[in-house]
Write a protein that binds this DNA or RNA. Structure first.
Lengths: 190, 190
DNA sequence: TATTGTTATACTCTATAACTATA
DNA sequence: TATAGTTATAGAGTATAACAATA
């Protein structure tokens, strides 16, 4: 099979690489993965000046919302391993954004608390998140944004996604989702 | 600052972890990242029985579409480093799905070709992708799916995303996008 | 004995930088 | 000298398992 050109798809002259532009739209499922990854990446970039990663922000928010939860509980809430939480908590504590406090009832337990600085940081993150959204959805008017949010919300609920928690931890292996060009549209018919 | 309970947000009694369920909808940008990551993860799972990763499928599709391109060109097309492509090409070639052929004009160049088995695999992947989409968008009727695809397509174009190519390679560092709970909605006003 | 938080280890994935063979 | 592909090295990130303190 080293000689053959006979099996090359004739739909494309093999004279050069196909330009990536293709007028036809990609399937919605692929667009979701593509735009979603882009959104996450951009948000991560906007976070860099603050010296925070999306993971930090996720933890910060959870601590801000359910202040006083133990690390075990927070890990469960985020669907990640407690051992992984340790490093994140360390880093946020070094920055003075959260702190550990020993539970009076059970001295094994570390209770996580948001500091004033942490709250201020959270406010700043809010600004960034909204700026991020405005830039991301710049092509859509406000009614279209509402429609998009509604459709996505229904998908999220139907798929059993926990509100406010990214998938990609849990028991799914590495989250790294590399390439995967365009998912086929109608290759099945042949 | 080890004694203080004074700064704990009183909005939440620190008697236990907040249940993750929250009726209010998340911002559209967060939903995009969340649902997008979920879509990618689910697609990856469906691919497992074939012994392929999303990366394999992406490469397979590019080779299928622009048959006869060099590795250098394919790497450029996918926006990833040529050295990373080598392993993927190796694996697909071991499975007999693609093959390398020396270019007659320039013997440094390896031209990538899709085999018959590769084409059949691509057909199977097409079936999987559509089943995936049907399951992912099960909560939406066909008109809503079209609306979603349209909105996402406009965002993708506005954001300058290459059709059919996932972001997350290029010069952005590791793609791993861990947690990040709910992005704030209106924390700015305080 | 069970559980909380921590540390240590191993594994996966990726980018960067050498290297070879051709041009 | 420059380029295509390859190999080698190193770094980041994560899961798993072992550990000490407390219950």
């Amino acid at each position: 099979m080293k000689d053959g050109d006979s099996h090359i798809a004739p739909e494309q002259a093999p004279s050069g690489p196909t330009p990536p532009a293709r007028p036809r739209g990609s399937p919605a499922a692929f667009l979701l993965a593509q735009v979603g990854a882009h959104a996450a990446a951009r948000f991560g970039e906007l976070l860099e000046p603050l010296g925070l990663t999306p993971a930090h922000v996720g933890l910060l928010r959870v601590v801000g919302r359910s202040s006083g939860a133990s690390q075990q509980e927070v890990a469960e809430l985020l669907g990640m391993f407690p051992s992984r939480l340790v490093g994140l908590v360390d880093e946020l504590q070094e920055r003075g954004l959260i702190e550990r406090a020993a539970s009076p009832h059970d001295r094994r337990i570390n209770v996580l608390l948001l500091t004033d600085a942490g709250e201020r940081t959270l406010t700043g993150v809010g600004r960034i998140a909204r700026a991020h959204q405005d830039r991301l959805l710049g092509a859509l008017d406000s009614q279209e944004r509402a429609t998009l949010a509604s459709l996505l919300g229904r998908i999220a609920q139907d798929q059993g996604l926990t509100p406010g928690v990214h998938p990609g931890f849990a028991r799914m292996g590495p989250v790294t989702q590399p390439l995967s060009a365009d998912e086929p549209q109608k290759r099945d018919s042949d």
